[in-house]
């Protein structure tokens, strides 16, 4: 069981941290995982790709996945920058931060921006959606909520730990399948 994902975010949205929290949650669930950030000349606001793998066996490959079993989109705006279908496997699914899903694709959606704003998870004017997206991804990938919350605990301390755990919990419960 090897699943490969591509996490698309804008520089500053916390996609690298999201990948690492998810990977840690997988270990806690007894799985193997790998989070590969793709570093280049990224800066705030530019498109950043992160690759993610999970498996029940040790993962040997280290190259970036060309197409994902799932593609995560941290902001709707990203859909104008990249054709998601081109990096998605035929039966792959999309997990989107939005009020609604995408037609013509197997899609899950969660309003992560709204969750972040509700919790005042804001930095330099931007809602920080990474932990809400982690919650949504974890639900879709069937990871246990306890493992994700424990991974968030290991990643953050103090006040950040609490609100990020809330963000995970809310999104884990609110993520929905789109039937459009």
């Amino acid at each position: 069981m090897l699943k490969e994902g591509i996490i698309l975010c804008l520089g500053g949205q916390g996609g690298v941290t999201a990948g690492r929290i998810l990977a840690l949650a997988c270990v806690k669930d007894g799985l193997y995982a790998q989070a590969i950030p793709h570093f280049g000349a990224e800066r705030r606001g530019a498109l950043v790709k992160n690759y993610f793998r999970l498996s029940d066996k040790p993962i040997r490959r280290h190259s970036p996945a060309k197409r994902g079993d799932f593609v995560v989109v941290f902001a709707e705006k990203i859909l104008n920058l990249i054709d998601v279908k081109e990096i998605l496997k035929e039966d792959g699914l999309v997990i989107l931060n939005s009020k609604r899903g995408l037609n013509g694709l197997k899609c899950y959606y969660v309003n992560a921006s709204e969750i972040a704003l509700r919790l005042n998870l804001v930095s330099a004017g931007w809602p920080i959606v990474n932990t809400a997206m982690v919650g949504a991804i974890a639900r879709v990938l069937n990871l246990s909520l306890d493992s994700v919350l424990s991974a968030v605990e290991d990643t953050f301390g103090g006040r950040l730990e609490d609100i990020n755990k809330k963000a995970v919990e809310i999104a884990y419960g609110e993520v929905k399948s789109w039937s459009g």
Binding site: Y32, A33, Q34, A35, I36, P37, F39, P58, H62
Partner: peptide
Amino acid sequence: AFVVSHTAEV
């Protein structure tokens, strides 16, 4: 570089 240095894995 990055492939191992910055890739988080088990």
